[in-house]
Each structure stands twice: as structure tokens, then as C-alpha cells.
Design a protein around this nucleic acid. Structure first.
Length: 832
DNA sequence: GAGCACTGC
């Protein structure tokens, strides 16, 4: 008689099944990656016409594989991965290196490559010989004959290989099937399909580990296949590009098809779909842009909005638009998928649509709160790190959530000093910082395993909350704060504010401790404050952002009454009014609020309207090539320079070499990009000049895209060269005349003409140098930190303001500010 | 002479 399973049994069963699931999943992933890398390497060898981007991607995949393999190499080696198409010999090859000494070390990838290459050579060159030889040996060699007889039947080696591959595929399919049916969401499949038949909109509220993202699209596909229909496509939006790519990869494996066929993804700069594509993962912003060409979403039978609780700007707009489209397209199925208990709110928004709650599957996490409020979360965090490290016997890495780069660097230093003082009394502790501005190669370090017997502590910003996952973390220390970008529509100031996080965000952070085993989360605030002071969820982005670009898009889709648009959480009337005002002043809207021809052209470009106006006016000033570069570089300006602390002077000098008097920061960006391009986009060149290759590459991608879009909206290429910067600045003034400023009498501060705000030039600007301070200028950025700063600045002649926006600037007004023909045009007396 | 969280088209 077996006893009924108790709660512990169930827990351990859950635990085991989770472990098995994760193990299977990583096996499959790795095998897939190996195969992909092999395919790519063959292509690289045989195809000399691969694009730079493809080569980069191949290299990235190779590196990922290498990292995964090297992480695997710390295992004992005997229970390593078995390739789905592996035979015994390959497994042996993989394990062989463990027995070899270090001098003959070869990575597993190299060994595997060697083996594949060897096999390929045999197959290509020696095939006819081998066949003859086989026959020969079969007849005359007694040992061969004996082997053959004992094997029972003769098997053609090619056929055998094929059979092995088939077996492997079947095994893989079977394990995929097992994984799929073991997911919590599987229990709810019928319920989901039934609800789908009765309702147009469903809210799915599922916890992490439920399998919603991979399974829901497939269930929908089953639903529509049963219904019968000719063309079929399901869209599933994701807030992040990597998510769209990796989920598409996963689902294509589950469905046994090549990525880009039945299952594909679309992100900016990359479309991996085909006419056969039934399930398309795409970023939320991209689906929003698709409304421009297809306002009724006629290409889709169903839309899944995944991670709706994140409330990105694009997701919020999409939810309003889709609600509207759904009224006319009653055949369109809409699924809103969210992780938190916001489900009620989503349901109300969609006229009380039914909610499907699905439990998740993750390891238990113990939450600890501070007994008393902490005076400084940074020192509290550091103390907690050392407490865990010294007193906890359990292995597992520590993840600390802080707010920014400075804090992280300070924390790193402090921890390292303490550890040094304690010396050999405690096990080794490795500190890994991670934030998005950190160069790529440094970022990779967080994935390296901790030293044996030691521990790794990761100091991270919000980047580790959703965008980046580190396995092996068992302890999370949460400061309870993050930096939020807040835009003030009435002054145009942007500000990064350290804000307490929401409860939703805190549980997301805590969840990072339970990915590979049970974990603990230490919250540096009190339980009382958790339930009484923290907000339930983060303020939706739509209430914090500059809306001009979004509203232009909505206008061009044909949504005219923006104040009455069905927002789930409407932005403030001031924010809408300011955005409309800006669009009007740029000539994108006429006085009745309708879209103009220029406005339509501008809406096609996925950038800030000030920039799109600049691009359109670049046509008039015959400098499109130059402006495209500047626009693309402006988007990357904050991540462009990277100066190590000890080489700050060198970095400054390097930066200064690109500056020309009168051209400001903008023309300097142009020179940087052009020099990089002359250096054939060499990463080494970038490094020598203290520039980030990543930012430059992105700027190049953006530029390419803008160039194509310009062709489409009828703007013809033109160029004025990078030393003739007058037309360039004139085009910039056409977009940025509202960001004009004039030097005050003190010679140090500027006044913004539009609103009289007193600002200073940010020291990162090349115009900060006393000899370079412009009398009149326009700026691309206005930011409040310790003071009100303007950045990305270029000198102008005030007359150009009148030329660009005669209705906004009258000569008489500018004269009041001291416009004076006799004055040196752009700068005060030079100090020399 | 300051300091910038994170996404996305």
C-alpha cells in the first residue's frame, strides 16, 4: 500500500520535474546551436558574399556556443550533453579532452569541428574508394565478416547514418512533446480553446514558468486549423528584440520547422518570416508601425500582446488600437497576456473579457524584509552581500539591484576592499558589475562561472530585471529603487529620478533568485513600507514620455481625436497639447489639426519629429547624406564615448580631434562616423579613439534604414561634404528652432528663447570649452541633473531662426535679446 | 568641469 503523497513529496516531485525540464531544454538548445554554428561556418567558407551583419551574427553565435561549452566543461564530464545526432564515437570525442593533459588542450568545439571536418573529408574525397574497400573487406576479411554476421544484417553506412538521424529527430520530437505536455499551461489548453470559441478577447494571467509565451500561439494555431481557413497568421508581440528572436527559435523547434518558415520573427533591421509563416513573433513597436500600411491588421487572424503588464508605450497604444479594430473585425482574436494581477484592469478595459489564470512553475523563494528602514541602501546592500557570503553555507551567486553606474562602481570598490582586508579568512568573492553602458566584452564576464569554492556577486541595474538572465543566482538583494526617466512637457526637460520601485517590479526581481533552485530575496525596506508605501505597479511609460512621435504616428493612421482616444491610462492633457503644438510648429499638422504632406512624410521615419523634419529640410539644403549620419549618431550619442577612468585625458583629446569650430557637436559626430567608415568600420580604430563599436554599428544600421525610408518617401540623395557645414546647420535649425538659446551677459549661461529657461552647457559638449562657447546656438538635448544642462550643441546665426520659422521668430524679438550684426557672428572674444 | 536607468521603431 503506498501512502498518499504529502506536501513535501509534491514539492520534491515539482522540483524534480522542473529540473528535468530545464535540463532537457538546455540540451536541445545547445545541440541546436552547435548545428547552427556548423551550418554558418560552412556558409562562411563557401560564400564570399556574406554581409558584414551576417558575419557579425555568425561570430556572435560562435562565441555564445563557446561560452556555453566552456561552462559545460566545468561539469564532471561524464554526464555531458549527448547530441541528438550523436553516436558513441562523438560522445567519446567530447569527453576525451577531460583525460588529456593541458598541453594538448583543445576546446570541445574545436574537437567537434575537427571531427566533423574529418568526416566531411572522408565523405567527399574517399567515398568511391571506401565503397570498393567495403566490398573487398566484406568478402575477404574474416574479421569484417564475423562482425557483419554478428551484427545480424548488413547495413549500408549511409542508410545507417540516416536512420540514426531519424531516431534522433524522433527522440527529440518525443522529448519536446514531453516538455510541452508537462508545462502547467497544458492543463488549461481545452479551457482556453473553449473560451476562444465564445469570446473575441481573452485575458491570460500566467505566472513565470507556465509556458504561456511558447504555447499560446500554438494553441491558437490548433484552434484556427480546426476552424479551417485558407490564409492564417498569428502575431505575438514582445517588448524586447531578443525575446522575439529566442521565443521564435524555441517554437520553431517545438513545431519541427526551420526558423523563418511556419514560425518566424520580425524585429527592426531583420525580418525572418516568409509567406508560409503562421506564427510571427515581433516587437510591439514594429506591430504598431504596421498599422501604417495595414490599418485593419487584415494580415492577421489573431494578435497576442505578451508581457502586457510591462506597459511599454507601444503596448499601451496597441491595446487601444486593437480594441478599436476588434469592433469592425469580429473575426480577429485578441489575447492579452500578462504576468501580474493587473488582469482585472485589462479585463475591464476590454469590456469585462474573461480572465484565464494559470499557475506558474518556479522554485520557492524566501523573502526577507529589513527590520528597520535603512539609511543608505547601498551600504545596507554591501553589508548583506558580505553577510550572505560569510555565513551562508549554501552555494549560489548573489544578484544585487542598484540604480546606476556610479553606485555600482562604488559598491564594487567597497566590497573588494572589505574582501581584501578579510583576506584568506573567507572564500573567494568575485564582483561583476553590469549595466548597459558597460562595453560588451565586460558584460560577458557575468556569465563566467564563479571560482571553485567561491562565489560571484553581480551588481546590476534594472538591466537584470527583464533583459538579461543569469543562471545560478540563489540570493537577490533588492535596494528597492531604480532610475526612471521623467519628461516634463511644459519645460521640455528630461530628468532621471531615483524612484522607489513597484511591488510588481519587486516580485520580478525576487523571481531572479529562483531560476535554478530555491532562493532567497533580501529586501532593503520594511514589510510595512512594502504594503503601504510601494505602488502596486510602475507608472505606464505613456504617462512619462514625450508623445510627439507617437501622436504623429496615430494621426497618420487616421486617429484624429487624440484627446478621446481609448487609452487604458491616458496621458495628461498637457502632454498631449504640447506634443500637438510641437507637431504644428514643425508643419506636420495644419491649423485644423490635420496631417500635412510633410507630416505624412515625417510619420514614415521612426525617429523624433524634430529629427524627421531636419531630414526633410536636408533635401532643401542639399545635405541629406550628412544629416542622415548626424541623425543616426545623435540617437547613440550617450553611449558613444567610453573613457576608462585612468585614460580620461587621452579620451578627451581623441574626442577633440573630430571637432571643427562652428560645427559644434553635430558636425563632430559626422566626422567621427565618416572617419570610422574610412577605417572600414574597424573595431580597433573605435577602441583607439575611445569610441564604442556597438554604438557606431547601431548608428550605421539606423542610418541604412533611414536611407531606405527616404527613398520611399521621395527624398533624393544629396551631399555637401563634411567641411561645408553651413547647409547642415541650417537643416538642423529647421527641426530644432524651438531649442534655440542665447548666451547671457555672464558669458557662462544661456537662455532658452522659447521659455526663458536659464541653462548651462553640459561639460560633455565640445562647446563647453570657454573658447568655443557659442553666442547663439541650438541644442538637441535638455536635461535636468544637478543643474539644467543643454547638450549636443551647434552654433547658429540668429537670422537662420527667422528663415526657418518666420512665424515663431521676429527680428524685433531677437533684437531684444541683443542681435547685432556687428557682433562676431557666433562667439565672444577668444581667449588666447 | 558633469555624470545617463531600460527598452523600441
Amino acid at each position: 500500500m503506498s501512502k498518499r503523497p504529502g506536501p513535501e513529496d509534491i514539492d520534491s516531485i515539482r522540483l524534480r520535474s522542473r529540473e528535468e525540464y530545464l535540463e532537457k531544454r538546455s540540451e536541445l538548445k545547445l545541440a541546436e546551436l552547435r548545428r547552427q554554428v556548423q551550418e554558418e561556418q560552412e556558409e562562411e567558407r563557401s560564400n564570399p558574399h556574406l554581409s558584414q551583419r551576417e558575419l557579425r551574427e555568425f561570430a556572435r553565435n560562435r562565441e555564445t556556443l563557446r561560452l556555453a561549452e566552456s561552462r559545460l566543461a566545468i561539469d564532471d564530464g561524464l554526464d555531458g550533453y549527448v547530441l541528438p545526432d550523436a553516436d558513441g564515437s562523438k560522445l567519446e570525442t567530447l569527453n576525451k579532452r577531460k583525460k588529456k593533459d593541458v598541453s594538448t588542450y583543445k576546446s570541445e568545439v574545436q574537437l567537434w569541428e575537427d571531427e566533423v571536418t574529418a568526416r566531411a573529408k572522408v565523405a567527399q574525397i574517399h567515398r568511391p574508394d571506401r565503397l570498393q574497400q567495403d566490398d573487398y573487406e566484406f568478402v575477404f576479411d574474416p574479421t569484417q565478416a564475423l562482425n557483419f554476421v554478428s551484427a545480424g544484417e548488413w547495413v549500408d553506412p549511409d542508410k545507417q547514418r540516416l536512420q540514426e538521424q531519424l531516431d534522433a529527430a524522433e527522440k527529440k520530437a518525443k522529448s519536446i512533446q514531453e516538455v510541452r505536455t508537462s508545462l502547467p499551461i497544458y492543463q488549461y489548453k481545452e479551457q482556453f480553446l473553449d473560451a476562444l470559441a465564445d469570446h473575441q478577447v481573452l485575458i491570460v494571467c500566467a505566472e513565470t514558468g507556465s509556458g504561456k509565451t511558447t504555447q499560446l500561439p500554438q494553441y491558437l494555431l490548433d484552434y484556427f486549423n480546426k476552424e479551417g481557413g485558407t490564409s492564417l497568421r498569428i502575431a505575438c508581440t514582445q517588448p524586447r528584440r531578443v525575446a522575439a528572436m529566442s521565443v521564435a527559435q524555441r517554437v520553431s523547434e517545438e513545431m519541427g520547422c526551420r526558423l523563418g518558415q511556419e514560425v518566424g520573427y520580425s524585429i527592426r533591421f531583420e525580418d525572418k518570416t516568409s509567406p508560409n509563416t503562421k506564427i510571427q513573433f515581433l516587437t510591439d513597436g514594429l506591430l504598431l508601425r504596421q498599422f501604417l500600411n495595414d490599418p485593419t491588421l487584415s494580415g492577421y487572424n489573431a494578435i497576442i500582446i505578451d508581457e502586457a503588464h510591462e506597459r511599454t508605450l507601444a503596448t499601451d497604444i496597441l491595446m487601444g488600437m486593437i480594441k478599436d479594430v476588434g469592433k469592425y473585425r469580429t473575426d480577429l482574436k485578441i489575447i492579452i497576456s500578462s504576468a501580474t494581477l493587473d488582469a482585472q484592469k485589462f479585463s475591464q478595459f476590454y469590456n469585462d473579457s474573461p480572465i484565464l489564470m494559470i499557475p506558474g512553475r518556479s522554485y520557492p523563494i524566501t523573502i526577507y524584509y529589513s527590520q528597520n528602514p535603512e539609511a543608505s541602501y547601498l551600504s545596507a546592500a554591501i553589508t548583506t552581500v558580505l553577510q550572505i557570503h560569510c555565513s551562508m553555507k549554501d552555494p549560489g551567486d548573489i544578484l544585487v539591484f542598484l540604480t546606476g553606474q556610479d553606485e555600482i562602481e562604488a559598491g564594487k570598490q567597497s566590497i573588494e576592499e572589505t574582501v581584501r582586508k578579510l583576506g584568506s579568512k573567507i572564500p573567494e568573492l568575485v564582483v561583476c558589475p553590469i549595466y548597459s553602458a558597460l562595453p560588451q566584452e565586460e558584460q560577458g564576464k557575468i556569465f563566467l562561472p564563479a571560482p571553485p569554492g567561491g562565489r560571484k556577486v553581480i551588481l546590476a541595474t534594472n538591466i537584470a530585471e527583464t533583459s538579461l538572465t543569469v543562471d545560478g543566482v540563489r540570493f537577490v538583494i533588492d535596494s528597492g529603487y531604480s532610475k526612471e526617466n521623467v519628461y516634463n512637457p511644459s519645460t521640455g526637460l528630461e530628468q532621471l529620478v531615483v524612484t522607489p520601485i513597484s511591488r510588481a517590479s519587486s516580485s520580478q526581481r525576487a523571481g531572479r533568485a529562483g531560476r535554478t533552485g530555491p532562493g532567497s530575496c533580501f529586501r532593503l525596506w520594511t514589510r510595512w513600507s512594502h504594503f503601504n508605501e510601494l505602488e502596486e505597479s510602475t507608472t505606464p511609460e505613456i504617462q512619462r514620455a514625450n508623445l510627439s512621435s507617437t501622436l504623429l504616428l496615430l494621426k497618420s493612421i487616421g486617429i484624429n481625436d487624440l484627446l478621446n482616444f481609448d487609452f487604458m491610462d491616458p496621458p495628461s492633457a498637457t502632454a498631449i497639447a504640447k506634443a500637438l503644438e510641437e507637431l504644428y510648429s514643425l508643419g506636420a499638422l495644419d491649423s485644423t489639426g490635420s496631417l500635412t504632406r510633410v507630416g505624412r512624410q515625417m510619420s514614415e521615419l521612426p525617429i523624433d519629429p524634430k529629427l524627421s523634419k531636419t531630414i526633410i529640410l536636408a533635401d532643401t539644403h542639399q545635405c541629406l547624406e550628412e544629416i542622415l549620419t548626424i541623425v543616426a549618431m545623435l540617437g547613440e550619442s550617450s553611449a558613444l564615448f567610453f573613457a576608462p577612468k585612468d585614460k580620461r585625458l587621452h579620451a578627451e583629446a581623441a574626442k577633440r580631434r573630430f571637432y571643427t569650430r562652428g560645427g559644434g557637436d553635430h558636425v563632430a559626430y559626422l566626422k567621427i562616423f565618416n572617419s570610422w567608415s574610412e577605417a572600414e568600420y574597424d573595431p580597433l580604430w573605435a577602441k583607439e579613439n575611445y569610441l564604442q563599436q556597438k554604438a557606431l554599428t547601431r548608428a550605421r544600421d539606423v542610418r541604412e534604414q533611414l536611407q531606405k525610408l527616404c527613398e520611399r518617401i521621395g527624398i533624393t540623395p544629396s551631399s555637401c561634404g563634411d567641411s561645408n557645414y553651413i547647409p547642415i546647420v541650417k537643416a538642423l535649425v529647421a527641426g530644432y528652432f524651438s531649442n534655440a538659446a542665447r548666451l547671457n551677459r555672464d558669458g557662462k549661461s544661456h537662455t532658452v528663447l522659447r521659455n526663458g529657461l536659464s541653462v548651462r552647457i553640459h561639460p560633455s559638449s565640445m562647446c563647453h570649452e570657454p573658447t568655443e562657447v557659442p553666442k547663439w546656438c541650438i541644442f538637441s538635448e535638455l536635461r535636468l541633473t544637478s543643474q539644467e544642462f543643454i547638450a549636443n550643441i551647434v552654433d547658429i546665426d540668429p537670422q537662420w531662426l527667422i528663415d526657418a520659422a518666420p512665424y515663431a521668430f521676429k527680428k524685433a524679438d531677437l533684437e531684444k535679446f541683443g542681435i547685432d550684426k556687428k557682433m562676431p557672428k557666433t562667439r565672444p572674444a577668444q581667449a588666447k
